[in-house]
Amino acid sequence: MTIKKRGRPQKTAKALSHAEIIATAKTLMVNNGKIPSIRALSAELNVDAMAIYYYFKNKTVLLEELTASLITEMYQPKGGLAWEVQLRELSKSYLTLLSKYNGLLHTLLAMDATSPANVFIDRFTHITHGLNMSAAHSHAALNLFVDYLHGFSMAMSCNNADQLVVDDIDASLDIIFTGIKASL
Rank of each mutant, 00 (worst) to 15 (best):
L164F: 05
F56M: 03
I52E: 07
I127E: 02
Q76F: 05
L87M: 13
A40N: 11
S134A: 05
F120P: 02
Y94F: 14
N160A: 12
I52T: 02
A140D: 09
L90R: 00
A117S: 12
Y53A: 02
M111D: 04
L98E: 04
M74I: 15
N132L: 12
L164H: 01
H129Y: 12
T96V: 05
N58K: 06
I52C: 09
D162M: 07
N46W: 01
A110I: 02
S69D: 15
T128L: 03
F120H: 09
F145M: 09
V146Q: 08
L142Q: 12
G103M: 04
N58F: 07
T60C: 04
L149S: 04
I176R: 00
K57W: 08
D162R: 10
S134H: 07
L90G: 01
L109R: 14
M154R: 15
V146Y: 13
A171K: 14
S42N: 02
A82N: 14
S157F: 10
E44D: 10
F145A: 04
E44R: 15
A110S: 14
S115H: 06
M133A: 08
T60S: 12
L63N: 15
F56N: 03
K181H: 08
K59R: 15
N132H: 15
V47C: 08
L45R: 03
D162G: 09
I38Q: 07
A113Y: 07
K181A: 09
D147Q: 11
A136V: 12
N143V: 11
D48A: 12
C158P: 01
S115I: 10
S69L: 04
I71M: 15
N58Q: 06
L98H: 03
L105I: 05
G80N: 06
E64A: 08
H137F: 10
L144T: 15
S42D: 07
K78R: 13
P77Q: 04
A141W: 00
E65D: 13
A40I: 02
H126W: 08
K92Q: 13
I121Y: 14
F124A: 01
A161E: 15
V165R: 15
I176W: 01
L45S: 01
G179R: 00
I71H: 03
L108R: 06
A161G: 07
R88E: 08
H150A: 11
Y101I: 08
M74L: 09
T128W: 00
E44M: 07
P77E: 06
A43S: 11
P36F: 06
Y148G: 03
Y55R: 06
I52K: 06
E89K: 14
H126S: 13
T114Q: 13
G80L: 06
